[in-house]
Simulated assay, not measured.
Amino acid sequence: MKVEIKPLEKVSFTVKETAKIMSTGTDTIYALISSGDLRCMKLPTKTIPGFEIERFMRKALEDQINYTDILKRQTVAY
């Protein structure tokens, strides 16, 4: 019996990749992380799991959250 090995799907993304997925800039992603709205892991750089991106986007849509004001007030610390 031959065992088929499938390549792993990408499960986590860099800040730059997350910004591309969400059609925004890296400063916005850093601000969302800093505010606690988007969670990440530090491995050793900030890494965002795919399920977290989906959770954030779903919550923003369901709750009709406008992040514009939050992002204007946020001081980004990398």
Rank of each mutant, 00 (worst) to 15 (best):
I5W: 00
G50T: 01
D63K: 13
C40E: 06
L43D: 12
F13M: 08
L8S: 00
L32Y: 13
S23I: 04
D63I: 01
A31T: 06
K10I: 01
T68M: 08
G25V: 06
I29M: 05
T75Y: 02
M22Q: 12
M41S: 09
L61R: 08
T26V: 12
P7H: 00
G25M: 03
M57D: 14
L71V: 10
T18Y: 03
I70S: 11
R73I: 10
L43P: 05
V3Y: 04
F51M: 04
T14A: 04
M57S: 14
A31Q: 15
D69L: 11
K6G: 00
E54L: 14
Y78T: 07
K16N: 14
S34C: 13
K59V: 05
I33V: 13
T26A: 13
L32A: 14
E4Y: 02
D37C: 15
I48S: 03
I70A: 11
I48N: 02
F13L: 04
E54I: 13
P7A: 00
Y67C: 07
I70N: 10
A31K: 15
K20W: 05
K72I: 07
V3D: 01
N66V: 14
D63H: 07
E62Y: 03
F51T: 07
T26R: 05
D27N: 11
T18R: 02
T75L: 05
R55V: 02
L43N: 10
Y67M: 10
D69N: 15
T68E: 13
E54A: 12
G36D: 08
L8M: 00
T26C: 10
P49T: 07
V76E: 03
L38W: 12
K16C: 10
I5R: 00
T18L: 03
S12R: 09
I33H: 02
L61V: 06
T18P: 05
R55E: 12
R55A: 12
D63F: 06
M57R: 11
V15P: 03
K59F: 03
A77H: 11
K42L: 06
M41K: 08
L71I: 14
E4L: 04
T75P: 02
P49I: 06
I29Y: 09
T28A: 13
C40L: 08
V15L: 10
P49F: 14
I65W: 08
A60H: 02
M22R: 07
T24G: 09
G25Y: 04
